[in-house]
Simulated assay, not measured.
Amino acid sequence: MRSFTNILYDTLHLFYPHICTGCGSDLLPQGNQLCVYCINDLPHTNFAQFANNPIEKIFWARIPVTAAHSEFYFAKETLLQHLIHQLKYKNNTDIGIYLGEMMGNSLLQSGRFSQLDYLVPLPLYPDKERKRGYNQAAVICKGISEIMQVPVLNDNVVRRRFTETQTRKHRTERWENVEGSFVVNDPTVLQGKKILLVDDVVTTGATLEACGSTILQVPGTKLYIATLAYATK
């Protein structure tokens, strides 16, 4: 005889179907955001395991980064682009937390991101965050925090001025666009700490560099960087 729990689950599923965020299939375990086929289709980089990986090389001769990682390769018209679009523009914070948990597992297993003190989401300009309703980097941090048990520091590093979209700018223009955009409200909180700066996608790294350099002005800080995706030029 089927258990009452299974019958209840099947009844609820009929009226409130739990479907895969990637393909829309309802063939996925309860609590998952993606079916097994979409999970297997995600393009993991495995960068967390290796020093001098492509993400760390982005910041060579720019800012001292202790270790850096991107969980997935990004390409247009792919599953991953769809998932990031769901996170940023469709209020689907659950998928951001879920992918953040995946990244947290990679960071934890690598051993190169141990003993972090804080996760810092790359700040959005306040008006933009109010319009969206949340900062997608903070959502990703929530997933990482669930796995790594490292607290998220949301309001100490802030973006103090609006910047234009970086999409069509080359590297120099991107840096000029974001230079001086960030400030640390209370440097004593970060002093002597290991900080993981988190964002959704990295391309040239200009925005992360600008924010990271501000964090590194606090004495004794060590900077780590992690993004959900790596978009090659």
Rank of each mutant, 00 (worst) to 15 (best):
V150H: 01
P151L: 12
P151M: 09
V152N: 05
L153F: 06
N154S: 12
D155G: 05
N156F: 04
V157A: 14
V157P: 07
V158Y: 04
V158T: 04
V158N: 01
V158A: 02
V158D: 04
R161I: 08
R161K: 15
F162L: 15
T163V: 15
E164Q: 15
E164D: 11
T165D: 08
T165N: 09
T167Y: 05
T167W: 05
K169V: 10
H170T: 14
T172Q: 14
E173V: 12
E173Y: 11
R174M: 04
R174Y: 05
R174E: 10
W175H: 15
W175A: 05
E176L: 15
E176R: 10
N177Y: 06
N177S: 03
V178I: 08
V178H: 01
E179S: 00
G180F: 06
G180T: 08
S181Q: 09
V183W: 01
V184S: 07
V184A: 11
N185V: 13
P187R: 11
T188E: 09
T188G: 01
V189R: 08
L190Y: 05
Q191Y: 11
G192A: 05
G192P: 09
G192K: 14
G192C: 04
G192M: 09
K193H: 03
K194V: 14
K194W: 01
K194H: 11
I195S: 00
L196F: 06
L196R: 01
L197Y: 08
V198H: 00
V201E: 00
V202Y: 07
V202T: 13
V202L: 15
T203F: 10
T203W: 03
G205C: 13
G205I: 07
T207L: 07
T207K: 06
